[in-house]
Amino acid sequence: MAGKILIVDDEPNIVISLEFLMNQGGYEIEVARDGKQAVEALDKFQPDLVLLDVMLPYKDGFEICQMIRENPKWKHIKIVMLTAKGREMDINKGLALGADAYITKPFSTKELLEKVQEILNNSSNDA
């Protein structure tokens, strides 16, 4: 079963790798390179899951995460924080803001894919 994934990251090379991986998983993909684009894409693209970097221009990942969770029409969107910020504090902050998973960079490609699948499956089971 497939879904729509929004990749939000400003490192072009990382985006390329994520695109490749998600393509392999059979998902529909959209890329946003900064906070502004991300917000636009949320409306237009209506993703099921967001892969969210924290250090972003204009609006950081935490803010976007908060925004999504505060808006009821985006209630169903899953959030996977994917970031090089690996301090306990950062992880807790991400989860507290309502992220479904927090994965630190560098990540294992397999694990990432499995996590994304698991989260999307759970959500469709709930529904």
């Binding site: 790798s17 994520l18 990540f107 294992s108 490609t109």
Partner: peptide, 9 residues
């Protein structure tokens, strides 16, 4: 970590 991420991925 950022370049390392690309390298590993």
């Amino acid at each position: 970590r950022t370049p390392l991420t690309s390298v590993r991925a």
